[in-house]
Design a protein around this nucleic acid. Structure first.
Lengths: 128, 128
DNA sequence: ATTGACTTTGACGTAAAAGTCAAACTTTTG
DNA sequence: CAAAAGTTTGACTTTTACGTCAAAGTCAAT
């Protein structure tokens, strides 16, 4: 327990390059420890990387991901800031709901494409 | 009916720039008519643009969008091609399902953030 | 003690998807 | 008819998110 992960261990697990992880560090998303100059990743870093990659998959920019991490690390205490944050959260949710609808619609279409393929294959199958 | 849309009409409707629509034409996604040099968009073009933008929102590249349009315009007839297409469709579906799950998870998190904000605001509200 | 695997920084390159700007042409409207 | 508004092509620029070396350092194992 309390294991360290090497950079290549994580690149293999997540299918990203070392360049990507170093880029995320440069961008201030992760802060692995060091032994000398070598990066040592803890499981907290690993979990954070998982969240970063999830954000990436749904199309968040680095800046947006950084912002989200920031909110978790140090949530605002002042009421104006809190209201602003809630507004931003609302906007993000609307965006994500739209995106989910887009995905559902597209999944429907892909179903249709697949069916059309099967139908066509059956037709061909009969005639060969 | 059978109305023409001007390029700026569509840019305003969809919140994109003229550059974007011309770019989509250069990329072979749309083929508006011309009167002289001026582009004239029909409602079929308009609908296609809507689909393109939906693809964009869910993170499809131009190449992927072009591919999808291509399949609709002229579906493959040969069984090897059909099977290949079905495989690609399956992959896309897996990808979209993952993305959907990512979105749901993130929506959950945003709910938590909002609740935390409300709680904090209530605390502050009491003390002011 | 050298081979091989892994890691570092730093610099430069790249692909995708537009943004920006210039110079010219058309169309509409006051 | 003259100005304003809209449109065109073409060229160059920008941003994001890394990729791709190069040159050097570290570490384990043979």
């Amino acid at each position: 327990m309390n294991k360290y992960y090497s950079i290549t261990e994580l690149t293999r697990e997540f299918g990203v390059s070392t360049r990507t992880l170093r880029f995320y560090e440069d961008e201030g998303l992760i802060h692995p420890e060091r032994r000398g100059r070598t990066r040592l990743f803890r499981s907290a870093d690993r979990r954070l990387i998982m969240e970063i990659l999830r954000g990436r998959r749904i199309g968040f920019t680095i800046a947006e991901i950084r912002e989200i991490i920031q909110v978790y690390k140090d949530p605002p205490g002042e009421s104006g800031q809190l209201r602003l944050l809630m507004k931003r959260v609302e906007e993000k949710r609307d965006e994500l709901r739209q995106k989910r609808k887009d995905i559902d619609d597209t999944l429907e279409e892909l179903n249709n494409v697949e069916e059309a393929c099967l139908t066509r294959l059956a037709e061909i199958g009969v005639s060969t």
